[in-house]
Structure formats: C-alpha cells, structure tokens
Design a protein around this nucleic acid. Structure first.
Lengths: 335, 335
DNA sequence: CTGAAAGCGCTTACAG
DNA sequence: CTGAAAGCGCTTACAG
C-alpha cells in the first residue's frame, strides 16, 4: 500500500495524503479524516526508503546523560551510536550534553537549551523530581518523545524507560552470595545512599533472595555516598563493629575504596561488585573480588536510541513502556 | 557523494557508473576501471535508501540450522528475524531449512537445494567436514557469502563465524565451580562426546581455570552422547565409581537425565548446566541446579543475519571473521 | 558498449 | 484548501 493508492481511493492528490497523515495542516478537516480512515483501514505505513531518500535536513535528537566523570556511561553512549548506525540512511544529529551528577536545575537548563534548539526527540538520565517530570510533559505535549535511560522519573509522560531491573539485580546478588558462602554467612551490603530508590531496591532484592533461600545468611547495611574515601571509612568501621561479617556486596559505586577496607579481612571470593567499569574489571582480574553484577549499559543506550529513532524517523511507537536489561554476572573469564 | 557526481567526473552517464561498480558487465574495461578508481578515491558508498527504493524482487537468503528437535535454536532463529527487521525497507526472503542433527549428506543436499534456488547469501550451522567446506567454497566463488552460526567448519571460505567461545565458557564454569565449592571439591564434567571440538574446549577451559586458581579442585570426565537416558546411566555410574565427587558441570546436552542421577547425592547448589533452554530453566527454578552458562543464542542469530544482510544488501563486508558471544551466567533470578 | 529515460515512494515548495 | 510538479539516489529495461 502506497500513498499514491490511498490518494486514489480518497480521490485526492498524494501530496494531500502526506499532509493529512502527518498533520502538517492546510487540509480540509473532513478530507483529512477520510484520508486517515482509509490509511488506517489499509494498514498503511509509509515506506522507510521513500522517506529516507527525501530527508535532507538532519533530524536533531537531544541526549542528556549524567556521564561527566562517570565511565559507566561510555558504554551507554556507544550503544546509542550503534542504534544511530542502524538508521544510517537518515540524516540524524545526536546532540549530547554531559552533566556531572544529578542536579535538578542543571538538568532543567540542559532540557531547556535542547528544547529551544527544537529537537525532535530526547533521551536522558532524569533526576527524579516533579520539575523534571513537568519538563518532560511539556516536550510530550509538543509531540517530542522522551526516553529515560538507566534511571527513571516518577509520574512523567516519558515514552519509555530502558534500564536495569534493580530488584532482579539485588536478588541475583543475594542468590550468588548464598552460593559463594555455602548458604551461611554474614553479609554487608554497601549502598550509596538510602535515599536512592535503585540502591534500596537492590538491598531489598538481596535480602529477599538471601532470606528466602538461605536463612542462615544475615544482612547488615552501610552507606558510602558513592565515594571511595567515604567507602573505605564506612566499610572499615562496619567490619570493626561486626566482627562476624564475612562477605560483602557493593550495590553501587565506591567499590574501589571499599574493597581496600576488606583486604585481609574478607576473602575476595566473597566480594560482589556492581557494574564492570574499568576499575572493577581490574579488581576482578587481580583477584580482589569474585564477581560483578552488570546491567548491560551498551544495550541500555542501544535500545533507548533505537526506540527513539524508530518513532521519530518512521513513526512507530514502542509497544511497551519499560524495557529491562538483564543482570549479568561477570567473573574473571567472561568479563 | 552520489553516483551522479561520479558519472560527471568520469564523463559518463550514471547508468554506466552503476553497471561498472556492480560488475553487471557491458562496460568497456578501461572505462569501468576509471569509474571504480574515482569511486574509490571519493569513498563512495551507494545510498541505502536509493537502493532500497528500487528493489522490487525479494533477495533470497538461505538458512540451514540443525534445529529440528532442538529448542536451543528457537532463539537463534528469533535473532535472525530481529536482524531482518532492521532491514525491513528491503524485500528479503529468508528460506529456512531445519535439519535434525549434523549429518553431512543431509546438509550437503540442503546446501545444493538452496544453491539451485540461487540464494544471495547463506547462514548455517555447518557439519565440520571437508565436503561442507568445499560446498561453502563453491558458494564463495560465486560471490555468495556464507556465515557460520553457533558452530564452525575448518578450512572453509566462510565469511564470518558467530558463536560461543567454548574455551571462555569452560573457564567461566571452572571459576564458578571453584566459587561454589569454596575452592575444594571433586568435579565431574559431563560432555556429549570427546569427538566434538566444542565439548573438549569447554572441558579444557574448566580444568585450566580450576587448576590455575583452585588446586584443591579435581576433575573427572564422562561422556553422555548428548542423550538423557545415556546421561542418567553414565552419571550414576561415575558417581558410584568416584564416591568423592561432590559437584557436576554439564558442558553440553543431556542435563535433565544427568541431574536426575545426582539427586540425593550432589547438592543442587553445586550443579552447573549449559544453555538456558526451557528444560534447564525449569531445573534451575525448581532448585535442582544452581546455574547455567549460556551463550546468547539470540545474539548469535542476530549478529550472523545482520552481517549477512549488511553485505548482501548494502555491500559492506564484516570487519572481522570471528564474532564471539559472551558466556552469561544465569541463576534463578536473572534467567 | 553507453546514452537517455522511467520509475521506486515519499516530501516539499509552488500555483492557483 | 488542494492540485501538479520536481526531486531525493538508485537500478533497469530500452535504444542506438
């Protein structure tokens, strides 16, 4: 089915079909409705090739990542470039903004800048705040789809979330720890902050799996502010306070400092990290930790950008509103 | 850079450029060479959109999988369909042939049938034999690229192999077993056949990793012919003969029968399977085995078909001749 | 052997 | 508000 055939059935010219179907205005409302109905009934989807061939102006897509100083996002970014490759026949311009951390005002500013440059779609690692949700809503109202990556924002009109299932990651870590300890041990779970939803989900998942399958595995918790120095101190302290602790799960960042504090006190084969960033790979390769629970950052970037481009370039919306990446367990030999 | 611009530089018509660049014949050799040189120097790649728009005849692609009666290949097939989706703007016809097992003559017949139907590219799970390698060579000579999936064939002109790194899979299993047993145990490694290269690689990898890191972990081996009944008997026998065996790695198929033989004798938390086919998932979910080392079958199909279509449809050859998928460790919570 | 044209399905000025 | 045409980059008959 082509636009030409729709035009014939509707008794108009194919230019008019195009205008009606894409809401470019300047079409009699009744004619437009008739055209849309015919297209719907015929199950018409515009040909990707025809569309690509005629696209001259690059389509701007905004990307806001909290990636400054955080190597984890290198892979996310690479995944986005992979997806862009899949649409190499379209002129697309990815506009990256790298922010440091998750500050609301900075993110709102970045969003506004992109919006002024009238991007046609946005991928971002949102700060979980009402103001950000609202900004996303304004974009959605202008038919600019927003996809959240790696972390989500509550109550927003974002089109899709692509990221980790923190609950599953925590449970996987819990089960693995049960296996590493023969089902009996005293675990320390190190989170960045109890205020971060994802960290709490991992902690809860860990406790659940451990409690369910390994009743003789106990769980203590400590915060490290996602910082290595802080992590060293906090873990050192926790190990001193609880002499029975014999295994550690780092649910977030700060593992390098924390692992240092474990030296000579907790067996490396009972230490689990999160994410396989370079520093963690090194810890694993040198035998200072057994495993890392990873969240497929490249897939996160790929899926998010693929969905965004699919919608913006060929008008196909994602079928779901959440896409979880798998929790991968990496040891020295499958890094 | 467009074909039109090449034509101008070469002082010919753009139809001639097309014929010269794609070797369709009917072009003066000197003119053709001049055109090719100009195109090369200009780094010309034909536009995917232009090409897609003009393609009417479906491009036939042959797929031969040893998938009959083997659910593992459901995912491989799905991955191939995913890749086909990425080239939805081209008319492509995937011609699947599902064979039972790896019999040379049957595979050669299937290859010949496809060849007669003049496919433009082939993906297959090859039997590792000179005759198959030769058949691949004949296709290559006719400019029909062949990609091997999941298993490879020695000394052939295949364009690319996409599959498991059996060595890494075995090492990962060995390391994991060391972790599960606290570094001291007596392992039984169950392979299908010592004649299968992949199985031996996994066994060797397992022993290497175990020997390197866990000198107190010993390794015994048994064959099960990839069959569940045979597996039950062989494992039962091995466990009786070696009373000290306390952990088992199933490096290939036949785990369902083998696990049955372990009941009450080897702790489920010390049993590792290979691949997350439905039967294995069930074993893991019901607590009869701890983990499965998986080889990303969907990725195998996806990468293989993507590379094939990329070459056949837009003329870009793969940059490498081997693509390993990762060995994923799956527990109950990250299946 | 090569020129000249038509056409794939779409979008976009331009007329009216 | 809508018709009529041009053009994106390519391939493919068709002439000569």
């Amino acid at each position: 089915m082509t636009a030409q055939e729709i035009a014939q059935k509707a008794g108009v010219f194919r230019g008019t079909v195009d205008r009606a179907l894409h809401g470019r205005g300047g079409v009699n409302p009744e004619t437009a409705e008739r055209i849309r109905r015919i297209a719907r009934e015929a199950g018409y989807t515009p040909s990707r090739a025809g569309r690509a061939l005629v696209s001259r102006e690059p389509v701007p897509i905004g990307v806001i990542l909290s990636s400054r100083g955080n190597p984890f996002f290198d892979d996310v970014r690479q995944g986005m470039l992979d997806a862009r490759e899949d649409y190499a026949d379209f002129p697309v311009e990815l506009r990256f903004r790298a922010l440091r951390g998750y500050r609301e005002t900075e993110q709102l500013t970045a969003l506004r800048t992109l919006t002024d440059g009238d991007v046609r779609g946005v991928a971002l690692t949102p700060v979980n705040s009402p103001a950000v949700a609202e900004a996303i809503g304004r974009l959605a109202a202008r038919d600019v789809p927003v996809v959240t990556v790696n972390t989500d924002v509550e109550g927003s009109a974002r089109r899709l979330y692509v990221g980790c299932d923190d609950d599953a990651a925590g449970r996987t870590a819990g089960k693995l720890m049960g296996l590493l300890t023969g089902g009996a041990g005293h675990a320390l779970v190190v989170v960045g902050s109890r205020a971060v939803l994802g960290h709490m989900k991992r902690l809860r998942g860990f406790s659940e799996a451990a409690g369910l399958e390994y009743p003789r595995l106990t769980v203590a918790t400590v915060e490290n502010g996602d910082d290595d120095d802080e992590s060293f101190r906090a873990v050192k302290e926790a190990l001193a306070a609880h002499p029975d602790i014999d295994c550690v799960y780092f649910a977030a960042a700060g593992a390098v400092g924390g692992v240092k504090a474990c030296r000579g006190r907790v067996a490396p084969d009972r230490i689990i990290l999160s994410d396989d960033i370079a520093a963690h790979r090194e810890l694993i390769l040198q035998g200072s930790a057994a495993a890392a629970i990873c969240q497929q950052p490249r897939q996160q970037g790929y899926r998010a950008m693929k969905a965004l481009l699919r919608e913006v370039l060929i008008g196909q919306r994602p079928e779901t509103d959440t896409l979880f990446t798998r929790s991968e367990i990496k040891l020295r030999y499958n890094l």
